[in-house]
Computed example of a mutant assay.
Amino acid sequence: MSHRREPSVKETLDASITETNDGERSLNNYILKDEIGHGAYGTVSLAIDKETNTKYAIKEFSKSRLRKKDKANYFRRPPRGGMRGARGRGRGGAIFSNQSLNDPLYLIRSEIAVLKKLNHKNVVTLFEVLDDPENDSLYMVFEMCEKGVLMDVSINKKTTPFSDEKCRRYFREMVLGFEYLHENDIVHRDIKPDNLLLSSNDVLKIVDFGVSEIFTKGNDLMKKSAGSPAFMPPELCAADHGQISGKAADIWSMGVTLYCLAFGCLPFVKDNIIDLYDSINKDDLEIPNNNVDPKLVDLLYKILEKSPEKRITMPEIRVNPWLTNNGNEPLISTEENCSEMVTEITEDDLSSAIKTISVGGVFAVIGAVNKFKRLSRSSHSASESDLAKLKAIGDSENSV
């Protein structure tokens, strides 16, 4: 399988929004159309290039919201062992200066530098970064995934499951995409159908690297939680959980996503966030349909294994009988899948990721307190004692 050539990411530091009398808004050469998504830091809009008529997805970020995160001191520790290129130089790596550790812009540059380096068929492409120096917005221009999210499913919403053939097809693409990330020392940490989009030609694209982590080769241990509670592994659903394997956590979330595709619902569903965590930790996996390929059931049990040490690994998944259709449809080799490896992220990459944008907040981290507030709003039945327990989990994650 050949991957696309690495795109050249354009950096535009003098972006501006204009509006015509009939209300049409433009960002430089892009006509901004309907809003197609909304997140903690801003919105995602459909955009059309005036010159080529090509469709893009433009993600807009609010600098003031980022600054608020900064003021609340929602900082994470630097990635374990530093960024790529700092291997073998001790914890933290030589490229982390005291100034960069206290500079929220550094974290933003880091993520954009990573996005520039990713080059895989099943990972979304970043084309351009724009700054509007006179206003509150920073923009990132991504390839458009016209068919939208892989599946619309949540705690409160069931949907029509996919056929076995369709499940296998999309899960194979997930495996190739996340194997590529893991081989490049990147864990996603927020795998769910919402973050898996489909292109116009039905190719799965991994998106949203907002809470991803880069780790030193051979050491994917991390402590802080990230992602959506219903997709979190058991090892993150307890106070004082200590360090956990980022790769194993990603694999659990892949399993929850596969379960959604196969059955149109989540494997662990509770109204209360604390009960949900307890369910993920303690309840047995239930298969809601007796008419399921036993090999798929076996794979789900191996992926949704409570113990991360016993959980199936990526090399084992890629040769699984269900995924390979009893060996008749093997995946391409890991070597071929990861042939276009991420090059080392250097000091120059970080300094040039966004050259002059002045942003005072954190792009790559959603603070635990903010997450707890959001979760408590969505879990109306949570008691004060439940929320106190939840805060205890957060406190344990924030301790260094």
Rank of each mutant, 00 (worst) to 15 (best):
T160P: 08
V123M: 02
M140T: 12
E165H: 13
L181S: 00
N184W: 11
I206E: 07
N119M: 08
N102P: 00
V123S: 00
M144V: 02
K158Q: 11
R109P: 01
N184A: 10
S110K: 12
L126A: 07
I95A: 08
R189I: 01
V129Q: 07
G93M: 09
I108P: 03
G88Y: 05
P193V: 06
V153N: 14
D103S: 05
L130D: 00
H120K: 09
L150Y: 12
L105Y: 10
F215L: 04
R169P: 04
N122V: 02
V153W: 09
T125C: 14
V124I: 13
M144C: 14
A94P: 01
L126N: 06
L126V: 08
P133L: 07
D152V: 11
M174Y: 06
F171T: 04
L204S: 01
Q99R: 02
T159N: 15
N156F: 15
S212E: 14
F142R: 02
E213C: 14
E146H: 04
E146W: 07
F96S: 07
T125V: 09
F127H: 14
T159Q: 10
E134L: 12
L101K: 03
P133I: 11
I155G: 02
T160D: 15
I214S: 11
H182N: 00
L176S: 12
K157T: 15
K158R: 15
G92K: 11
G148H: 04
K192T: 05
G210I: 02
F171S: 03
G210S: 09
N119I: 00
A94E: 13
I155D: 08
F96T: 09
F209L: 09
D132L: 02
M174P: 00
H188D: 13
N184H: 00
K117F: 01
S199K: 05
V149L: 12
F178M: 11
D132H: 03
V203T: 15
D208P: 06
